[in-house]
């Protein structure tokens, strides 16, 4: 077992180093640049934190479903519809009221977008991976159509909404440019702590974890497993929607075609890396945020940004070999 982990880790490391050598960049220099790009200055930190915020919440969405034994690959779509719904509401209702209503709309949209997947999983035994991928596709087309049509800012060439008024944005909690910490980041941290408490201390949280850990044992322990699966999927979607709403209202200030550069997919990696505890999401989201931010810096050195995805994939492989062994693997 240990040998396998070691083998996989070494193989992964060799692959990354090999890739860097191929790029004609000394591996140590590239890694140093990666770190500098992510943490080397205040603005680097600000960029990393900005990248981390949506990953934290989207990662939590995936994490929650994963605890219930569900792979919510649909966070991407839930995030997109959440962002779009929040911006649509905020365009109509400006000011603080708009922010509150818009955030709620984002949450509701995300939950709604996960509902079919939850229903089909719980009552039709249809695999959630397929339904959520399909829902991602529909979310993508729907948002593209709306942002090119009814929601489009007529003064712009590209498909995008109007920019929200400053008063209709989620404010920075701390701002000393270039360093800023947005309220959205804090919301993510609070929600993670709350989820950790909820999972550990409440009957519902206990039953959710039992469902994910051993469906049959949960059933024998009186857990209504179908209902748990449905509601965890919906809750996961709601958090995904919130991630989109905060990203839109805190950082972007508008919605546009291609709003998410793959936050939903990165968040799968974030959740898998986090392991069993929600607090594992903090280092894991930070690592992904840093990778996203840092990879733009090494691009300047001539290392294609794809390298960060290679690292991501390898990280998941290494962690999966350590942690995600299937049940029955007791050797």
């Amino acid at each position: 077992m240990r040998l396998r982990v070691a083998l996989v880790s070494v193989a992964a490391l060799l692959l990354v180093v090999g890739a860097l050598v191929l790029s004609g960049v000394p591996p140590t220099e590239a890694l140093a640049e990666l770190a500098r790009g992510a943490f080397g200055s205040k603005s680097a930190w600000a960029g990393t934190l900005r990248e981390t915020t949506p990953l934290l919440l989207a990662g939590l969405a995936v994490f929650l479903a994963l605890r219930a034994g569900l792979f919510n690959i649909g966070v991407e779509g839930q995030l997109v519809v959440g962002a779009m719904a929040s911006v649509a509401v905020c365009l109509a209702v400006p000011g603080a009221a708009g922010v509150v209503l818009g955030t709620l709309a984002g949450v509701a949209a995300g939950a709604l977008w996960a509902l079919p997947a939850g229903l089909i999983k719980a009552y039709r035994n249809g695999h959630e991976v397929i339904t959520t991928i399909m829902l991602n596709g529909v979310a993508n087309f729907l948002s593209t159509a709306l942002v090119a049509g009814p929601l489009k800012d007529p003064s712009q060439q590209s498909p995008t909404t109007r920019l929200l008024d400053a008063s209709t944005r989620i404010p920075d909690l701390y701002s000393a440019p270039p360093f800023r910490v947005n309220l959205g980041l804090v919301a993510g941290l609070v929600l993670i702590a709350a989820t950790a408490w909820w999972l550990r201390r409440t009957v519902a949280g206990f039953e959710l974890r039992a469902t994910g850990a051993n469906l049959r044992a949960a059933e024998f322990a009186g857990v209504p497993v179908r209902r748990v699966m449905l509601w965890s999927m919906v809750a996961s979607g709601a958090i995904g929607g919130l991630a989109g709403a905060l990203q839109a209202l805190a950082y972007e200030g508008r919605f546009y075609a291609g709003f998410s550069p793959g936050y939903g997919f990165d968040s799968l990696g974030v959740a898998i890396l986090a392991g069993a505890s929600p607090f594992g999401l903090l280092p894991s989201a930070l690592a992904f945020g840093a990778l996203a931010k840092g990879s733009t810096s090494i691009q300047i050195l001539g290392v294609p940004k794809g390298l960060s995805y290679v690292i991501l994939g390898l990280l998941i492989v290494v962690f999966a070999v350590v942690r995600y062994r299937r049940e029955g693997a007791r050797d």
Partner: peptide, 12 residues
């Protein structure tokens, strides 16, 4: 299959 969750602590 029906009585325990192997990876959970006794407490849980």
């Amino acid at each position: 299959e029906e009585g325990v969750i192997d990876e959970w602590p006794l407490l849980e």
